[in-house]
Design a protein around this nucleic acid. Structure first.
Lengths: 93, 93
DNA sequence: TAGATATTTAACCAAAAAGTTAAATGTTGT
DNA sequence: ACAACATTTAACTTTTTGGTTAAATATCTA
C-alpha cells in the first residue's frame, strides 16, 4: 500500500521480472515459477511480497491461482519520480 | 548505471529522503547527515550507493563535499514503469 | 474417501544490507 | 608543520533478505 512497500517490492530483479511476465497475460503461480531457476516456494514468497504491495492480484481457479498485474499502484511511484524530476505533473485528461 | 542499481538505490527510504532533500538544493554531506538520526558514516554510505547509481553527483568545495541530484537517471525507471503500465511513451517535444 | 497436483507456509540458513565506532584522508588557517 | 574540521573507509555487528526443503492446505478426479 505504501510507497515504501512498492519501492521495496520493485527492488528485487526477480519481482520486476514477474511483473514484466504478467504484463503480457495473467499466469498461474506454477507458470510463473517455471520462468525462474529457483523453487516454487521462493517464487511464492516473491508473489506474496508483490501482493502486499498491491502490485498484483490473485484469483483462484480450481487448483490454480492466477496472478494478474495491478498497474494502478505504479501511479504513485510515477508521481514520486516525476516530482523529483521537477516535472509539473498535471492530471492527463 | 543499470536499472538494477537504480532500483536498489531507491529501495531504501533514507536514500529516497536524501534525493528529496537534494531536489530543493545541493547540500554538503554534513548538512544531509543532520537530517538523519544515524551517524555521518552511515549517511556517507548511502551517498556512495546513490552515487554509484549515478542518482547524485558530488563536487568538493574546500572542506565540504556538495551533493546534487542527477535526475536524468530517473528517465530509465520512468520508462520501465510506463512500459509496465502499457503506456505508449512517446517523447514529449 | 483417497491420491495426485498446485500452491503456500514454516523452519531454517547463508549472504547482503544497514548500522556502529574508530582510524584514515583531504582541506583549511595559523 | 600542525591542529581543527569534514568526510570517507575499515572492521565489525545486527537485521533483513532471498533462498532451501519439508509439511500443511486446497482442489480435482477416480
Amino acid at each position: 500500500m505504501s510507497l515504501q512497500q512498492t519501492m521495496r517490492a520493485l527492488g528485487d530483479p526477480a519481482r520486476r521480472e514477474i511483473l514484466t511476465l504478467l504484463k503480457e497475460k495473467s499466469l498461474s503461480a506454477g507458470e510463473i515459477a517455471e520462468h525462474f531457476p529457483f523453487s516454487a516456494a521462493a517464487v511464492s514468497k516473491h508473489l506474496s511480497i508483490l501482493k502486499e504491495a498491491d502490485l498484483i492480484r490473485d484469483t483462484r481457479q480450481g487448483k490454480y491461482i492466477y496472478y494478474e498485474l495491478n498497474a494502478s499502484v505504479l501511479e504513485e511511484i510515477l508521481m514520486w519520480i516525476s516530482d523529483l524530476k521537477g516535472a509539473n505533473h498535471e492530471k492527463v485528461e
